[in-house]
């Protein structure tokens, strides 16, 4: 006790902030690990449908994304208001899909190619016409594993 009071009597030391960076670093690492950088800039607006049977996609590095929806406000002047297909950063035509699939395959290891999944992020208001055409193109490109991206909801 005597020792204690002696110390506190002198100049009271400021609380050490040396461990603060450690705490912040811990948070930082958590976010770094859990972060998925936004893959692309959306040029289309997409409101995903909801589904109770939706499952989490494993192995994100083997997933390629295709977006379908009406163009954003800033792109309506160029592409109109009809739903369009976006591959990577660009609005694409149906004819480009097979080539795009090949490019996506080229970026992966050869052994991983059969495991590749194509995630279709499609706005719920889009007509099935364009979706059917898209699926047809994917079939011809031998891209058969697809995932209808949807929000997971708990069963009613």
């Amino acid at each position: 006790m005597a020792k204690f009071s002696k110390k506190s009597k002198g100049d009271s030391p400021a609380i050490s902030t040396a461990s603060l960076p450690d705490i912040i670093f811990m948070l930082l690492f958590f976010f770094m690990v859990s972060t998925t950088m936004k893959e692309v800039e959306y040029k289309v607006t997409i409101k995903l449908p909801e589904a109770s049977e939706a499952k989490k996609i494993e192995n994100k590095s083997l997933v390629s994304y295709i977006y379908v929806g009406p163009p954003n406000k800033s792109w309506t002047a160029q592409y109109g208001t009809k739903p369009v297909i976006q591959l990577n950063d660009q609005i694409a035509k149906l004819e480009n899909i097979q080539q795009w699939v090949e490019e996506e395959r080229g970026q992966r290891d050869e052994v991983d190619v059969p495991k590749m999944t194509y995630s279709l992020k499609i706005d719920e208001e889009v007509d099935m016409g364009i979706v059917t055409d898209l699926k047809q193109e994917l079939r011809f490109a031998q891209a058969l594993k697809i995932n209808y991206s949807s929000k997971r909801i708990t069963q009613k």
Binding site: F31, S34, A54, K55, I57, K60, R139, I146, N147
Partner: peptide, 19 residues
């Protein structure tokens, strides 16, 4: 990292297209 993080889990219905 907080700003760039999108925490959305990718989920969906898996299907296989016919060849």
């Amino acid at each position: 990292f907080l700003v760039t993080t999108t925490m959305d889990v990718d989920s969906g219905i898996m299907r296989k297209l016919p060849p």
